[in-house]
Amino acid sequence: MGNPLGGFIRAKRDSIQPETLGLPDRERRRSPGLRRLDLAARAGISVEYLTRIEQGRDRSPSPAVVNALADALGLTLPERDHLRYLARLSSSPCGADVRPEPPRRQVRPSVLATLRLLEPGLAIVTNRLGDVLAHTTGFRAIASDTGMLDADPPNLTRYVFTDRRARTIFVDWDAVADEQAFDLWLTPTVENSEWLTTELAATGGPEFTDRLRHHRVPDRGPLRLDHPTGPRLTLLRETLELPGDGQQLVVFLAADDQTAETVDDLRRRSSGPLRSIS
């Protein structure tokens, strides 16, 4: 995935119109956005140093420089957190000796026990690649007719970008696609997601690669589904991070009465034990 820190800075710089920062309208440029010269001046660093950061030749900028760049780019709080995360990721000593491989897929017994306590609710255990590692019967009830769990093992990122049904199921497909692409940057190491990124670059096409390159920090609002069997579902999400495992426990809650009634109806049609996929 190359140089994520420099890629994020370049993406944000290219997205900024100089006039929005009170800068003069200069001559027509060959590329859009804020010039390196202007960003470096706003951040109080040299153009040469900014160039080294963007090109990945300097991977350890100080916290003061990272904060100055965040101020100069006018980043939102989530974007600032992402910039700091990428700076830590960039400076970590994971070099060529780290083999590309997916993060762990096994779910701890205590996490599975927690998932059972959530029955018959809607909950899953997933990782940042989008692998669904375990799920309740309630989640299977709403997902079984959508194709989300068809693959072996199921992977939500691959589903969103390669399964045509996803664009019909997810009302806000663009927002969901932003989330899945962004989360690939949050795997334990860049190498963890390299194998999936390579695959999706070919199969997902520009819809995937553009999102990965631009680091769009998602809002993660309610999840809206046009379920194949009937009414629209609107689900709120609560996420519990499991940092030792690089996994998340996600609980879905009905946002309105119609959704609650539809979920209850789907659960009545479905039966079976909690599913763990490793």
Rank of each mutant, 00 (worst) to 15 (best):
M1K: 01
M1G: 01
F8S: 06
A11S: 10
R13Q: 14
R13M: 07
D14I: 00
S15C: 05
L23H: 06
R26M: 08
L50P: 04
R57C: 01
S62A: 12
A70S: 02
P78R: 06
H82L: 11
L83F: 10
L83S: 06
R88F: 08
P93Y: 11
C94T: 12
A96T: 13
V98C: 06
E101K: 05
Q106K: 02
P109T: 13
L115F: 11
V125I: 06
L129M: 11
L133G: 03
L133R: 03
H135A: 15
G138D: 05
A141F: 00
D145P: 01
G147C: 08
M148Y: 01
P154H: 05
V160K: 01
F161E: 12
T162W: 04
A166T: 09
D174N: 14
A177I: 02
E179D: 10
Q180Y: 14
L184E: 04
T189N: 01
T197K: 09
L200C: 03
F208L: 12
T209A: 07
R211A: 02
H215G: 08
R216H: 13
R216Q: 15
P218N: 05
G221L: 12
R224K: 07
R224C: 11
L233I: 07
L235E: 04
R237A: 13
L240N: 12
E241L: 14
Q248A: 09
L249R: 04
V251K: 01
F252M: 04
A255D: 05
D264V: 09
R267I: 00
S271M: 01
P273T: 03
P273F: 14
R275F: 02
S278V: 12
